[in-house]
Design a protein around this nucleic acid. Structure first.
Length: 84
DNA sequence: CGTATGACGTGCA
DNA sequence: GTGCACGCCATAC
């Protein structure tokens, strides 16, 4: 159990229709300054149970996605969590 | 063990 | 308002 698992758990707890920024996730994970690592972890970690598409940048931008930002945008728009 | 990387964030020009 | 550059942390190899 480390920062990685904590981040994944936090992201997994994100309810539908709600999005969190990498910084927020890092803060909830215990390291508010590790937002850099959050993106890294989500990128390397391919866990289908982790709705990583609900994690966006603080700017409101999508950021990136394993399968392609298109899918991420699609999911967010479908859930009504984003206004792009 | 040490180096390099990255789906970020903030500041400054 | 937009663009560029730097700094930050943890993970993976």
């Amino acid at each position: 159990m480390g920062f990685k698992d904590k981040v994944l758990e936090v992201v997994r707890k994100i309810p539908e229709g709600h999005t969190l920024s990498y910084k927020e996730v890092a803060k909830l994970a215990g390291n508010k300054s590790a937002y850099r690592a959050v993106g890294n972890i989500l990128n390397r970690n391919r866990n289908p149970n982790i709705p990583c598409h609900r994690v966006i940048r603080s700017d409101g931008k999508i950021g990136g996605f394993n399968k392609g930002s298109r899918e991420k945008i699609k999911f967010l728009k479908k859930e009504g969590s984003i206004l792009i």
